[in-house]
């Protein structure tokens, strides 16, 4: 929508005004994320730029908050827990979700939209309500303050993402391939691993990444379900922000931003690969 050369002054003002406005919105979106990165290298325990930092004085910068993180038993313990919980629940959510998505995308599936609605519901219900319900119910089952409880909860929260991404991939799936495989003598397992899986892999992987980040970032449910033994990174950050906010949190935040960038990049690569493959299939 480039500006034509015959544009009136009013149109010109509007055109540039619009772009400036959009630029400001982009600044609003990205600044909060960028601003914590330099601040995490602050040599002083402040949450703002010191004069030394603004003058690019090397003494104004230090790695002390990162050192703090990597030498703190509590942080290392919680990062270990975060990975245990996230990996276990991603694995469960991906396995259950992929199989269910295969069933859901079959045209003969009965009560399709009702069941889909039920399976998606963990994503719709506000987290505080999920947390309250799970807290009450898991307490009756003696599952609060256990890894099992946290993993079960995070699996439930992660499956909707797997279902959505995998069913989306299944839309373009040629069902004749399954029939071909079966007519050539493959049983269900062989068909699944040799024919279906390679084709829906992009959907499965992006679903798994979503499930992973959901669990890794999840804070509301773990606050209620986890005990001291299951302390994860988000709980540690949550209590850090509420009690005594130290710049170590900024160092952690910076590392989490890097993790999200990595995730974003891998999703984008999967998407591009997928598009390229589809492009070849279409021609």
């Amino acid at each position: 929508m480039a500006l034509p050369s015959y544009a009136t002054p009013l149109e010109r003002t509007w055109y540039y005004g619009f772009r400036v406005f959009c630029g400001l919105v982009f600044i609003f979106l990205i600044t909060p994320i960028l601003v914590i990165i330099p601040l995490s290298f602050n040599a002083e325990p402040y949450f703002t730029f010191t004069e030394a930092m603004l003058g690019f004085d090397p003494d104004g910068y230090s790695l002390r908050w990162y050192e703090d993180f990597f030498t703190s038993d509590q942080w290392l313990f919680s990062i270990k827990n975060s990975f245990i919980v996230a990996i276990a629940s991603t694995f469960l959510a991906t396995a259950l979700g992929t199989v269910a998505a295969l069933g859901l995308s079959r045209p003969e599936m009965p009560f399709r939209s009702t069941i889909m609605g039920l399976l998606i519901s963990p994503m719709i219900v506000p987290l505080i309500i999920s947390a309250a319900g799970m807290y009450f119910f898991y307490a009756r089952m003696n599952l609060t303050q256990t890894f099992t409880g946290v993993v079960l909860a995070h699996t439930a929260l992660g499956t909707p993402f797997v279902i959505i991404t995998v069913t989306a991939t299944m839309v373009g799936f040629d069902r004749n391939l399954i029939r071909a495989a079966q007519s050539l003598g493959a049983d269900f397992t062989t068909t699944f691993f040799k024919v279906i899986m390679p084709l829906i892999a992009p959907g499965v992987i992006s679903g798994a990444l979503f499930a992973f980040i959901t669990s890794f970032d999840e804070v509301v449910v773990v606050i209620f379900l986890a005990g001291a033994e299951q302390r994860t990174i988000p709980i540690q950050m949550w209590s850090g922000i509420r009690e005594e906010i130290s710049p170590t949190i900024l160092a952690v935040a910076t590392m989490l931003v890097i993790i999200s960038v990595l995730l974003l990049v891998s999703l984008e690569l999967i998407r591009r690969r997928n598009e390229r493959l589809r492009g070849i299939a279409a021609t």
Binding site: V99, A100, G103, I115, L118, S121, G133, M134, F137
Partner: peptide, 30 residues
């Protein structure tokens, strides 16, 4: 057709059961 329906449902049932126990029951309990 009935067999196909049952097959499709069987694929979905593990997750449906899981969500029912780990999520829907807790909400109902609340």
């Amino acid at each position: 057709n009935r067999r196909k329906k049952i097959q499709a449902f069987l694929l979905v049932s593990p997750l449906l059961l899981f969500i029912a126990v780990s999520f829907l029951l807790p909400i109902a309990d609340m």
